[in-house]
Structure formats: structure tokens, C-alpha cells
């Protein structure tokens, strides 16, 4: 990585899905690796089930906490279709990582809009570098579906060059001791998705 390279990550999801923790762990991992870091997360109204994003940037010296469109190395989605609202953030060779979990918006249940039937195909035709899988199933296999976000972080980590110890250190600092083993395993499970 050259001296003035900044790495940007955008994580999209639905309010209440736990974006804050995901972006916090990512930021901490970058910090552990010796970088300057800035993040921004949405608080407030959108947290009531609306569409939300978190942004993380790291490098030798970071100015803006906001990611410029077309520059994110990784664009990740905690829900199946959410990243499609933010596709323009992704850089040309960027990696898209998506948890296939579906959260049906009320607008669909009410019949005023439709949830794309072919979401996977839509994602595949939009993003040449796509990792798409059910992080919830992976987490459930390990015994706790709540670790799905950390599984996804494992897959995200493949898109940026931070060393493994930086991640495990960040997870150790952020999750309660009794869930540490589970979360480390969850992270490693996610890293298998490339």
C-alpha cells in the first residue's frame, strides 16, 4: 500500500441490524494495524428499521470520514438487497460482500412495492466481484445466529489487507469474554468465503 492510499469500506443494512458493532470492529482492526482511522455511522430516525450505512476509512492520514463515491474497496450488506442502494460507492475493482438474509420492508407487505425475486442475479449482474452467502446459517452452525455480522466481517476482511491478528485483537476488545470463542470462530468461518 503506497503512503497516500486510503482504504474505504461501506457497510449497508437495516436499522437495528448492528452496523455499529461491525464498523467498530473494522475500525479497531485498522487501528491495531497502525493506521489512522475515521468512521461514520447513522444514528437517529433511520435506526427504526430504515436503510442505514456505516463508513470506515483508514490509511496513513485520513481527512474525510465520508467515503467518496466510486472509491470503496469493499461494499458490504448485512441484508440481501441493501447494498444496491449504495452501489455507486464501490470502486472499479471493489469487492461486494452480501449476507443473503432477507428483511421484508413494510412497503412490500403493504403491496406498494416488490422485493426483487431474483436478488442474487441482480447482485451478480451488478457486481463482478461478489461474495454472496447466508451468514446467519454459518453463525447458527456455530450455535448463535447473533454472530452473523462477525461471520460477514470475515468475508469483508478478504477484500482489504489487514493482518489477521489485527482483526482478532479488535474482536477480543469488543465482544464479551464469554462470546469471544464463538466470535473468533464466526470470523474464521466468514474468511472461507472468497
Amino acid at each position: 500500500m503506497s503512503n497516500d492510499t486510503i482504504v474505504s469500506i461501506v457497510i449497508a443494512g437495516v436499522g437495528g441490524q448492528g452496523i455499529l458493532l461491525a464498523s467498530d470492529i473494522t475500525a479497531l482492526a485498522a487501528l491495531n494495524a497502525g493506521f489512522d482511522v475515521k468512521t461514520n455511522e447513522v444514528h437517529g430516525m433511520a435506526q427504526r428499521g430504515g436503510s442505514v450505512i456505516g463508513q470506515i476509512r483508514y490509511g496513513k492520514k485520513v481527512y474525510s470520514p465520508l467515503v467518496k463515491k466510486g472509491t470503496a474497496q469493499v461494499l458490504a450488506g448485512l441484508e440481501r438487497i441493501e447494498i444496491l442502494r449504495y452501489a455507486e460507492y464501490l470502486a472499479k475493482d471493489g469487492l461486494a460482500v452480501v449476507n443473503s438474509q432477507m428483511i421484508i420492508p413494510v412497503t412490500v407487505s403493504m403491496g406498494v412495492s416488490k422485493y426483487p425475486a431474483d436478488a442474487k442475479q441482480l447482485l451478480e449482474s451488478t457486481f463482478p466481484r461478489l461474495v454472496y452467502f447466508d451468514a446467519g446459517v454459518e453463525a447458527a452452525k456455530l450455535g448463535n445466529i447473533k454472530a452473523a455480522n462477525v461471520v460477514l466481517l470475515g468475508a469483508i476482511s478478504n477484500g482489504i489487507g489487514l493482518p489477521l491478528e489485527a482483526w482478532t485483537g479488535a474482536i477480543t476488545k469488543r465482544v464479551p469474554q464469554k462470546f469471544l470463542d464463538l466470535n473468533i470462530k464466526a470470523f474464521m468461518a466468514g474468511r472461507n468465503y472468497k
Binding site: 444496491l84 442502494r85 412497503t107 422485493y115
Partner: peptide, 21 residues
């Protein structure tokens, strides 16, 4: 103005406004 490599496809997506829990 710089062209971004990927375009949002929000029009094809269902709206996701905040709602009462």
C-alpha cells in the same frame, strides 16, 4: 464530473422507510 463504476439501482428496489417497531 467523474463517472462512478457502478450505478445505484434504487428504482428497482422496494422503499425502506423507518417504521414503528
Amino acid at each position: 464530473t467523474a463517472q462512478v463504476p457502478f450505478k445505484n439501482i434504487a428504482e428497482q428496489l422496494p422503499g425502506r422507510p423507518p417504521v414503528l417497531c
